[in-house]
Structures are given as structure tokens and as C-alpha cells.
Design a protein around this nucleic acid. Structure first.
Length: 966
RNA sequence: GGGCCCGUAGCUCAGCAUGGUAGAGCGCCGGGCUUUUAAGCAGUUAUCACGAGGAUACCCGGAAGUCGCGGGUUCGAAUCCCGCCGGGCCCGCCA
């Protein structure tokens, strides 16, 4: 046996790493976590989302997997047949994008991926060779899924690996195909137009990673409303706006006099827009011919009719940007600072703009919105407040626009037109649908970003394209949300504070594109040009875990995995005999799969990080309720917050990410797990602090040394069989079993780790240090202790379990029985009285000038304990009168001393605790040495109030003895 | 920009539904020491051990906050109301 006490910490760490590897190997060889249905135990399907295999995992992921595994292991010990499967996500665009970059020798990607691979592979040549294989997307997925699965093992995750798959496997494709056929059958899938960022040069949609400047510039699609202003001869000036409700205050239309405009011939209409806008509209799905090209000034003076009936002139303005939207805007000078400034310019000097004076003379702002704290024309106020003199003071005008927009959006009410009386914040949608219904408006999309123009990494400018036939999941389809709400209401959300976010997510989810034209994935069965998007193909796969190992065992091909197959296995539809003939699987095997699904489903618990609430987890609820019977809806989601490092968010750019693979090298699995679980509640951000990590490592070492000591002396008993300290430690350990059980079952793993590990460790050390020598007893208690710790530190627990002589696995051992007879609340209170007494004594010592030699502890007289006992019948809120009346006999006899005692009890509202006089006396005696040490006093004397001459004795209370220093 | 959450000690968080003395853990500082140890010795003793000094764990104690800012309600606001500022998650052909 190795005695760690004599060696350094690093040696200890290396030793537990060795122990961990040993048990990981053993678990794997003995198939400890391979779970099959069994009649004698309830099944418990526990999942954590599979990782995406585009790179290494870090300790933030590690938290989720560690905490999740603690839950899985706890329920396994509580008598559930726990299945914890795992798979790998490879569908989606990033992996393919990585391969593309490796293929075109992008240096940054090469460096990044070499650094990733080096985490796992030492030889630089080998690293180079592996990365060069990444030109194939499947190689990226294969490499990372293989190393990540080793990370899971190295963390001690109790996974059944027989059910492993990747989302690119043909069996999975067949399953997802079925899923989407079902969704379509239910009417939850619709098709429609969808605007997205697009690179015309590459002919492809672009995501953040494809854009120059990436996430910093935050490129987005912005929807303008193109409003039609008609000329007498039937042409349309398409003026774009973000505030269509202002149409009721239109006074004129603006074009840039020098801007280049075109006339387009569409089906049945002629539109005028800027030349640049024509290109954009083409991408947005409009079909037209360019009829002619001309300068904006040609339009000036033209009269056009607005949808609200007003006839207004076209005027020139320099602030109009032909590169933005349609290059034509309409003017609302009462509520738009730019329009106001431009109108004033042109009214002041019509000649300069080449406009006849009489055309502009009569144009005045039209008030249409009431805004608190503003008069008739808010735009005028905002412009004048800033001393703006011309439309060319762009930055001031932008500031003014922001001010007015905000004020009107939050406080404004429309006061004219068919929507008079509606708040601005609510009116936009109504106006848009009104305009569209009358064919007076069309949507016009534009790219917006912090920095324009937005460029693709290939160099071309990113524009908005509109896909005409995009497939959507329509979360607002009749009945779907009702079911989702119903499912959520029945579910357990842990911590409960996150439920609100789920509820809100269900509310605002609308249509969501569910297929793309790039990336790895499953083709839409009813439109194979499209590939099912990766958040949609990962919503009900927990069901797939229940049968995938059978599918592989039976070598079922795509032909066998028809919709009817899944219909039977997951929904119980159809007749196995009939189906058997149809698809060539034996009826017996079909039944077996159906039974296995029924054994494991519903999903008992899914654990993940909070970022998944508003997407993955909510989708999972929606897809489940869409497809499965009610009895198979998910039961519980548990969540944890992320991990930061030394107070700072971990990120690639900061270079402060700790990869998960470092854990078994620099720390250890159990060490990591104990830290992850004990350092923060689920609902708390975990701050990874190296100092704290070290402290936990040291505690682990203390623990292991203590266990060594117990095991090496377990045949000896130098103290009483059943002395007070023995009864105390036995009580404490049994209480721990009970409390930790309660903490785990209410998903408070942190409390469980603190109570079960740190506090129990302290108790054990205290027992040994202050006179307790019954190691035979400790060994028995260790048998329980190690089991309540097994979920958190499974490897050390397994090692100790075997050193205790067990031949089976603690990972599969039952949760320990609580010996209720051993639990003695009074004895635990008595110990608390000793600790409190030490604290009191130290507080007194602080103010004493000279250091005393002796401490006399005087325990209250018996009658006081009697009073407290009598008062216990009172329940809070406790009234002074009632208390006094109960104690009246003593009040008469003892006077003030009794009154003080009653008042203390009333003040504590019944929370005053004591252990009874004899018990307190006894415990104080037993721990006299501890008291002396912790107070630094040489002699400690314990006395009864009845047999002392000390005046202070009158102050002694039950549970709070009087202290006399000398 | 929108939805939700949050802002209290250096860090992570309690306290806020019901207004009345601002808290915990970790870290930091000081002290103690029954533990342990790297390096090392002019000494005593001699394979051990003792000693000063340092470090770890442990024990005891301490410092540290205008409760994000500004208004309001109130005798009294971290807590209730309004406004601002700052942060997080989500709103990606990211997962």
C-alpha cells in the first residue's frame, strides 16, 4: 500500500490518475454501463446532447457532462436501470466549411486545426498527416468523434457506447426522413419565401463565418417596405421605408438628382427604382426587363399618388442614397428629421435645386403622431434643437432621427388615417398588411451591419437573396403550441427559474427554416434538393438510441428502414407479422425493438447548458409532441450555467480556453468532477480559479489519506465501542446519507458534494483527532460514505470499495440504507453546542487583555432545561404572554433568571436548541481537548451550575453554557 | 433592434414576493500549530533525531462594499416605482 502522506501532491495526483485509468478500463471490459431492458428494474433514459465534432471540447462542456454523469450515477444507485447513451453530431455546415478551407490551404484554418490535433497527437508529422486528411468532411468528424469519446471516458462518464452513432449514418438518415414525413403529415411544415444573406459571386448563402469581419460587424437582413407611388401614366415609384405608418404624413417623394435610376418592366407594372436597386430586386425574386436608364433629376416635378390618396410631387434631395434599398424615399417632414431638413433646404432655395418655387411653397409638414413632450412637429424640434441648417449635416441628422424614432416608437400614437388611436409600437404590422392587401406595397430587403458594405470572404459584396421555396417548420400551425405548452406544464424544469424562458420561447417561436442547400445531413424526403438543418435533425433522436444497436446487429439496410418500420417501433402502428413480410425483418426482432423502445421511453431526463433552452430544448418539446404519443413526451430537463475562467469568459480569441483533454493530464477525472460539482450551483456561473482547483485537489488528497488510515487500522479499536464520540460520528454519517440523498434527488449536486464530501471529511477528521479511535466503526461507516460519494468521485470510490473487500462495482451498488436508529439529533446538537461554545470563548478572548490559563464552562442548571422542554409545546409565532404563563411556576421561584430564559426562547421564536443537560455535559467532557486547542487555553474545566460558586453561572442557558476565564 | 435574465466584497453568489443593523463561500492579510515537505546546514548527536527559517494542509482571527447610476414613494429603500447605463443567453444556411 502506498502511503501518500509521505509524498508530494503531484505524486498523489499521478496516483489517482492511474487509479482512474484502471477503473475506466475495468468498467469498459466488464461492460458495466451497458444497459438492457430488465423486468426487475424501472428504466431511466438519461441523455446529454451529443457534441458537434468540429473541434475539441473544453471544460465548459466538461461541466455539463460531469454534472450530468453525476445524476446518471446517482439514479443508477437509487435502483433505476439507467441508460446513458452518447453519439456525435456531424450534420450541418461547419464541418464542410472546415474541409473547404483545408482544401484551399487557408493558413489560419491549417494552424488552428494543427493546434487542435496536437492536443491529442504528439508527433508533428502525424499531426500534419491527419490535418491534410481533413479535406474530407467525414475525416474531420471521424477524428474528433474518436478523440472526444476518449475524453468522455477519461472523465468517467457512465456511457453505454454500444449505441453510439453519428448523425451522418444511413440509419440515422432513414430515421430523420421518417421524422420529417411525420411532421409534414401533421401539417407542421410549410413552404414560402425566405430572405437571407447571399454572395452573388459564389451563388451561395453566407453565414457569419463566411463574412469578412465575421461576428464583429453583425450583418443582418433588414426588411424595408417598398411603397408604391403611382404616376398618372401608371408607372410606380417604389419608395422604401422602415416606418410605413408614416405614409399618412407624406408630403412629397425624394430622389437623388444625380443618382442613376432605371425603369423596369414587370408583369403588368412598370417600376422606377435606382439602378443598383434593380440588381438587388432581381436577387429577391422579381422578374423584369430594364426598359431605360436615366438621372434622378428627370423625375423631379412629377406628381405621384400615394396609397393614402394624397397627390405629392417628386423632389430632389442629396441625402438619398441610391445604394440603399430602392434609392427612393418618401418624405414625412413632421416626423423625420432628414425629410424636414431637406424640405427646408429646397423651400429656402428652390432655384438651387432646379425646382419651381410654386411647387414647394405650399408644402408643409403634416402632423400624424402625438408624442409626449413634443409638439406638433417632433422632427422640426429635433432639428432645431441641434441647430441643423442643411440636409448635409448627416451625423447630427442621424442622431436626431434616432431620438425621434425612439420617442415615437415607445410613446407615440397615430392620430390620423384608418389606424388612428393605435400606438406606434403596435401599428406597423397593421399598416403593412393593409398596404399589401391593397397591392400598394412589397417587401424590400437590404443588408444591414455595423460596417457597410458587407463583403463575403471571397471579396464580393453580400446582398439579400429571397428563396422562393424555403421549407419551414411552422410552430404557429394550429394546435402545435397548445400541445407544446401542455408538455411543458407537465415537465420538471430544473432549476425551476428557467421555466419562464421556455414559456416565452414557445410563445414567440414562429416559422423557422428547417432545410438548407448546403452542408452534411439528411435530404428532405419530399424535396431531395434540400438538406435538413442540424437543429431540426437533433430533436427526437433520444428515441433512436433505444434501438440503434439492434438495427446494427441485424444489419438493417436503408430499404428495411422504411417509414412503416419506424411507425411500428416508435408509434406501435401496424402489424409486425405483416410488416415482417414487407420489409424483411423477423416479427420477433420487430417486437423486440418495439419493447425496448417502450421500456426506455419517455426520456426521463435531459441535461444540458442553458444556451440550449431557446432553441434545441424547445424544439425537442415541439417535435416530441408532434410525433409521439403523450405518454412518451419528455419528463425532465436539467440545466447548468457556463464556465468562465479567472473571472473572464473563455474564448478562442482570448486564448484562455482549457481543452477537456487537459483534465486527465493536469488534474484528474475525480478532481475535476468534485470541483465542477462543488464550486457552483446549477444556476450559477462557475468561475474556474486555479487556486480553488488546487484547494479541492488538496481536499481530495486529505480524503484519500484519511481513508488510508481507516483501512490500515480497521482491525483496531482503541476507544469505546459505543462512546459518545462513536455515537456522534455514526449519527453524522447516517445523517449525511439521508441529507445527500435528499440533495441529489432535488438536483442540488453542489450541496450534496459539500455535505457528503467536505463536511463529512471534517467530521471524520475531528473524530480521529479528538480521541475517537474506533476504526472498526469507521470502516463500517466508510462503506456507506463511499457510496454516497460514488456519483461525484466514482474512480476513487471504486478503488476504495474494492479495498473494502467488495467484489462487485460501487457504480452498480445500491444507495446505502440509513440506519435510523443511529441518527441522534440530540447528539449532533450537543456537538454543535461545543462548537458554538468555542466560538463564544474566542469572542470573549478577543477582548480580554491578558491571556487566561483556564476556561471554566458552566452548564445550566437542570431546571432551565426543564423550562425549555416545557416551552417546546409553543409553535411560532410565539407570544411572550403564552411563554410566561407556561413558565409561571419557575418565574415565581427563580425570578429574573427565569424571565431572561423565557425571553431568549421567545426571541429565538422556538429555534432555540439544546441537547439536554447530561448530553451537553458529556459532549463537552469528551471534547475537552478540542476546546483547549481551539481556544488556546491550557486547562478546560466543565462544571454544573448547581455545584459552582461562580456568579456567572446564572448566565448559563441550555445549549449555551456560561464561560469563566481565569 | 426584440424577448428573457442579471448588476450586492477581488471573484461567484445569498438577501429583494412582506422596506427597518448588508451576508456566505472562495481568494487576500495576520496569528496559531497537534500535520507534512523541497532545498539545506556553521551546531549537537550520529544511518535516527534536534534546531532556526520558509512553504502546504488544518485551526483561530481580520480587512474589504455609497448594494451599477439618477430620480421618485416613504420617517426610513439593496428591497417598491420610473428612467438611464453596463453585462449574459437567444433571435445565423452556427451548433
Amino acid at each position: 500500500m502506498i502511503c501518500f502522506a509521505k509524498r508530494g501532491f503531484e505524486e498523489f495526483a499521478e496516483n489517482i490518475r492511474e487509479i482512474e485509468r484502471k477503473w475506466q478500463k475495468e468498467w469498459k471490459e466488464k461492460k458495466v454501463f451497458e444497459a438492457d431492458p430488465r423486468p426487475d428494474k424501472p428504466g431511466f433514459l438519461f441523455t446529454i446532447p451529443y457534441p458537434y465534432t468540429s473541434g475539441p471540447l473544453h471544460i465548459g462542456h466538461g461541466r455539463t457532462y460531469a454534472v450530468g454523469d453525476v445524476f446518471a450515477r446517482y439514479f443508477r444507485m437509487k435502483g433505476y436501470n439507467v441508460l446513458f447513451p452518447m453519439a456525435f453530431h456531424i450534420t450541418g455546415t461547419p464541418i464542410e466549411a472546415i474541409s473547404a478551407k483545408i482544401r484551399r490551404n487557408d493558413p489560419k484554418t491549417w494552424e488552428l486545426y494543427k493546434s487542435y490535433v496536437s492536443l491529442y497527437v504528439e508527433d508533428p508529422k502525424e499531426v500534419e498527416r491527419i490535418v491534410s486528411k481533413f479535406v474530407e468532411p467525414m475525416e474531420v468528424a471521424k477524428f474528433f468523434s474518436s478523440v472526444i469519446s476518449r475524453d468522455f471516458d477519461a472523465l468517467g462518464c457512465s456511457i453505454d457506447w454500444r449505441r453510439k452513432f453519428t448523425t451522418g449514418d444511413p440509419e440515422y438518415n432513414a430515421f430523420v426522413s421518417w421524422q420529417f414525413l411525420k411532421l409534414r403529415e401533421k401539417g407542421y411544415i410549410t413552404q414560402g419565401t425566405y430572405p437571407l444573406l447571399f454572395c452573388p459571386a459564389e451563388g451561395q448563402a453566407v453565414g457569419e463565418d463566411d463574412i469578412m469581419g465575421g461576428d464583429e460587424i453583425a450583418a443582418e437582413v433588414q426588411e424595408f417596405i417598398g411603397i408604391k407611388f403611382r404616376t398618372k401614366d401608371g408607372k410606380v415609384l417604389l419608395a422604401s421605408t422602415l416606418r410605413p405608418e408614416t405614409i399618412f404624413g407624406v408630403t412629397n417623394v425624394w430622389v437623388h438628382p444625380e443618382g442613376s435610376y432605371v425603369e423596369l418592366s414587370l408583369k403588368g407594372e412598370r417600376w422606377i427604382v435606382s439602378e443598383r436597386a434593380a440588381e438587388k430586386l432581381k436577387l429577391q425574386g422579381w422578374e423584369f426587363e430594364v426598359v431605360r436608364k436615366f438621372k434622378g433629376r428627370e423625375l423631379v416635378g412629377l406628381k405621384v399618388k400615394a396609397p393614402n390618396g394624397s397627390e405629392v410631387p417628386v423632389l430632389p434631395a442629396l441625402f438619398v442614397d441610391v445604394n440603399n434599398a430602392t434609392g427612393i424615399v418618401y418624405s414625412v417632414p413632421a416626423h423625420a428629421p432628414f425629410d424636414y431638413a431637406a424640405l427646408m433646404d429646397v423651400k429656402r432655395e428652390p432655384e438651387k435645386f432646379g425646382v419651381p418655387r410654386e411647387l414647394v411653397e405650399t408644402i408643409e409638414p403634416i402632423h400624424i403622431i402625438d408624442v409626449p413632450k413634443y409638439g406638433e412637429f417632433p422632427a422640426k424640434e429635433a432639428v432645431e434643437k441641434r441647430g441643423i441648417r442643411s440636409q448635409e449635416e448627416l451625423s447630427k441628422l442621424e442622431e436626431a432621427t434616432k431620438e425621434i424614432y425612439k420617442a415615437e416608437f415607445y410613446g407615440g400614437v397615430l392620430v390620423v388615417g384608418p389606424f388612428a388611436g393605435t400606438k406606434i409600437s403596435e401599428v406597423k404590422e397593421k399598416v403593412v398588411s393593409w398596404l399589401m392587401k391593397r397591392k400598394d406595397a412589397v417587401p424590400v430587403y437590404e443588408v444591414t451591419a455595423k460596417r457597410l458594405p458587407v463583403r463575403c470572404r471571397c471579396g464580393a459584396e453580400v446582398l439579400v437573396a429571397v428563396l422562393p421555396d424555403q421549407w419551414f417548420l411552422d410552430f404557429n400551425a394550429p394546435g402545435w403550441k397548445e400541445k407544446a405548452r401542455k408538455a411543458l406544464n407537465r415537465m420538471e424544469i430544473v432549476p425551476e427559474i428557467y421555466r419562464r424562458l421556455f414559456e416565452d420561447t414557445i410563445e414567440w417561436l414562429d416559422k423557422r427554416p428547417c432545410a438548407r442547400k448546403r452542408g452534411i445531413g439528411t435530404r428532405l424526403p419530399f424535396d431531395p434538393e434540400w438538406i435538413i438543418e442540424s437543429l431540426s435533425d437533433s430533436t427526437i433522436y433520444m428515441a433512436f438510441y433505444t434501438v440503434i444497436h439492434h438495427i446494427r446487429r441485424l444489419k438493417l439496410s436503408k430499404e428495411a428502414l422504411k417509414p412503416e418500420f419506424w411507425d411500428y417501433v416508435f408509434l406501435g402502428k401496424g402489424d409486425p407479422e405483416q410488416l415482417s413480410k414487407n420489409i424483411g425483418i423477423s416479427a420477433e426482432d420487430l417486437r423486440k425493438m418495439r419493447e425496448e423502445f417502450l421500456y426506455w421511453y419517455p426520456l426521463d431526463q435531459r441535461h444540458t447548458m442553458i444556451a440550449h433552452i431557446t432553441n434545441h430544448l424547445s424544439f425537442s418539446i415541439f417535435h416530441h409532441v408532434a410525433i409521439f404519443e403523450e405518454r412518451h413526451w419528455p419528463r425532465r430537463f436539467t440545466l447548468n450555467e457556463p464556465v468562465i475562467r479567472e473571472g473572464v469568459k473563455m474564448s478562442k480569441s482570448k486564448g484562455n480556453v482549457i481543452p477537456l483533454v487537459e483534465v486527465p493530464r493536469h488534474y484528474s477525472a475525480d478532481w475535476f468532477r468534485l470541483y465542477m460539482v462543488s464550486a457552483a450551483d446549477l444556476s450559477t456561473v462557475l468561475d474556474w480559479r486555479e487556486a480553488g482547483v488546487r484547494t479541492v485537489g488538496n481536499s481530495l488528497r486529505r480524503f484519500y489519506e484519511l481513508v488510508d488510515q481507516i483501512l490500515s487500522k480497521s482491525e483496531t479499536s482503541s476507544s469505546e465501542e459505543n462512546g459518545i464520540l462513536e455515537r456522534w460520528i455514526a449519527s453524522r454519517m447516517n445523517s449525511a446519507v439521508k441529507e445527500v440523498d435528499e440533495m441529489f434527488s432535488s438536483f442540488r449536486p453542489r450541496d450534496a458534494a459539500i455535505r457528503g464530501f467536505f463536511i463529512a471529511l471534517r467530521d471524520m477528521e475531528t473524530y480521529i483527532r479528538y480521541g475517537g479511535g474506533n476504526f472498526r466503526l469507521l470502516r463500517d461507516l466508510l462503506d456507506k460514505w463511499i457510496r454516497i460519494l460514488a456519483p461525484v468521485i466514482p474512480h476513487l470510490a471504486e478503488e476504495i470499495w474494492h479495498r473494502l473487500g467488495h467484489k462487485d462495482f460501487v457504480s452498480l451498488a445500491p444507495w446505502p440504507e440509513v440506519d435510523e436508529k443511529a441518527i441522534d439529533p440530540e447528539i449532533e446538537i450537543a456537538y454543535q453546542v461545543v462548537e458554538d461554545t468555542i466560538e463564544d470563548a474566542n469572542n470573549v478572548l478577543k477582548v480580554l487583555k491578558e491571556k487566561p490559563e483556564t476556561l471554566k464552562i458552566i452548564v445550566a442548571p437542570e431546571w432551565k432545561y426543564q423550562v425549555m422542554e416545557d416551552l417546546k409545546q409553543l409553535k411560532p409565532p410565539i407570544d411572550v404572554k403564552d411563554a410566561m404563563s407556561i413558565a409561571r411556576n419557575f418565574l415565581k421561584e427563580k425570578g429574573k433568571e427565569a424571565r431572561d430564559l423565557v425571553m431568549e426562547f421567545v426571541k429565538a421564536q422556538g429555534a432555540w436548541k439544546n441537547a439536554g443537560r447530561e448530553m451537553e455535559m458529556h459532549m463537552l467532557e469528551a471534547l475537552r481537548q478540542m476546546i483547549a486547542e481551539k481556544t488556546g487555553v491550557r486547562t478546560v474545566i466543565i462544571e454544573r451550575a448547581e455545584s459552582t460558586k461562580e456568579e456567572r453561572a446564572s448566565r448559563a442557558l441550555p445549549g449555551k453554557p456560561a464561560l469563566v476565564f481565569a
